[in-house]
Design a binder for these strands. Sequence first.
RNA 1: AGGGGUAUAGCCAAGUCGGUAAGGCACCAGAUUUUGAUUCUGGCAUUUCGUAGGUUCGAGUCCUGCUACCCCUGCCA
Length: 557
Amino acid sequence: MESTEKNSNFITNAIDQDIKNKVYTDDRVHTRFPPEPNGYLHIGHAKASLLNFRIAKQYNGKFNLRFDDTNPTKEDTEYIDSIIEDLSWLGIDWEDRLFYASSYFEKMATYAIELINKGLAFVDDSTAEEMRTQRGSLTEAGTESPFRNRSIEENLQLFEKMKAGRLPEGSRVLRAKIDMKSPNMNLRDPAIYRILHTKHHSTEDDWFIYPMYDYAHPIEDALEGITHSLCTLEFEDHRPFYEWVLNNLDDFKSEPPRQIEFAKLNLTKTIVGKRYLKQLVDEKIVDGWDDPRLSTISGLRRRGYTPEAIQAFCEAIGVAKTNSTVDIAMLEHFIRDDLKLKAPRLMAVMDPLLVTITNYPEDEVEWLSVPLNQENPEMGDYQTPFSRQIYVERSDFMENPPKKYYRLYPGNEVRLRGGYFVTCTDVIKDSDGNITELLCTYDPATKSGSGFTERKVKGTIHWVSKSHAKAVEIHEYDYLLDDAESISKETFLSAINPNSLKVIKALAEPAVLSAKAFEKFQFIRNGYFSADPKYSQPEAPVFNQIVPLKSSWKPQN
RNA sequence: AGGGGUAUAGCCAAGUCGGUAAGGCACCAGAUUUUGAUUCUGGCAUUUCGUAGGUUCGAGUCCUGCUACCCCUGCCA
């Protein structure tokens, strides 16, 4: 259910202050998540969107979804669809508040004219290179554009021509007139409108000019009545301009939104960040945006992660201003935790070794009744077939076991989960010395559920009846990257783990065959698995390993 | 003439007015266990909060100086 106590963080502290100071009418809180539809969402977006959504909820406020579609050269409706799908799946609810920055284009242009009329914006003919030179450097002041002091009248006329599409792309730009000597580069007369004769996915051919993010964003926020505009750390330097825009526009004098910045999410052993994910997709290093190895929302979903696990993870990592890298083990913890009671627990053998139970009748088949999830009795029992020949995991037998090896070895007795105790009597090898089969005997008195308590056994292993075993393809994943500190976002491509996908032909008990896409199981002692939506066929599921089970078993000497 | 940020355990992270370092992950013990899982119990910052000083009865919190790391010179967001 609901977590009883919310962790406080610097953002809720700031909101609490605003409430104390009565900054916003009725102590209202209104947040938003403003993705640009130019790619797929990843776990970092999950953090940001859930943060905004939760804060709104926590203060009985409102939350908007807004597509920041101000750059038609990069954006596409494909991304809009995927973003809506991913956010819905994550459990985020924007009710009827789905907005597009592009629907404010007319108003933004009107506000630009207001700035021109106030002498706060001018049309610049300088080329991009000239502007770069004018801007100065981090340690040197910039110089003013020769077009900076055009008359308001001329600026108005030129801006109108830009807007009407009568000026070529890139030929002019509308700039805010602030301070070329500012130590903050973002205040050195930033461009607020550029000419782009590109078809926009939504406004199509209506516009020839498009607003820049720094200009558009405060207006979008203010128009929607946003109170707390949460964004990532790299925008800290942009905040003064955000405030400049709102301060200089008459409509936004009262209760302007407040920008608060937080740190992006990084994860160990993988890469987060749209730009890098796109590289992996474009260079076909992975199987599309929803490759189960990626940190995209669609990838995590396909891998088998649940919204609940991602929500719990995002809550647990908190939010702060420290640049940090969260251990991927934390993400894995939350999917195990979520699936623990939800997933039926069945048996599948990844690397089969044949076992013949020599004292078990040739043609007999017993249907054993086994709980689907011992920790969740409500799930009930199911039937699984047992017979004279079974497969066990090759790693569950050792001819010369180390100390504290509880599994099968010559002379040792183990429990077959849901079945009987068996004792290994013989090892059969081929001419090369490879083990091809084990001979065991079973004790009929030890049947599961019979109440047998006379002796105990240290090890319980999983198995599958040979004649009932179904071949099932398993995709087992390793991390995309090492944990090495030497890996940076610039060099990560060369550090990609070439063996991150391992395809296994496993043998599973019959019950798994009916698995539908996204259906999840625990394969006992192996981990959590989810039926892949792309490769699974009716009665022939392909499973993605979501995460292995934890194990404290370490072979010693 | 540079500016803006951040430093609390292996990893996240809380720490209102200065009052004697939450929680989670990971890890380590032990108990339970028909999964070496789960569950449970205990351990895990007192030459301690990047560092050196200062103020104070008392400092992670206040002051001063250092250091390290991140961000900023798109007509991207």
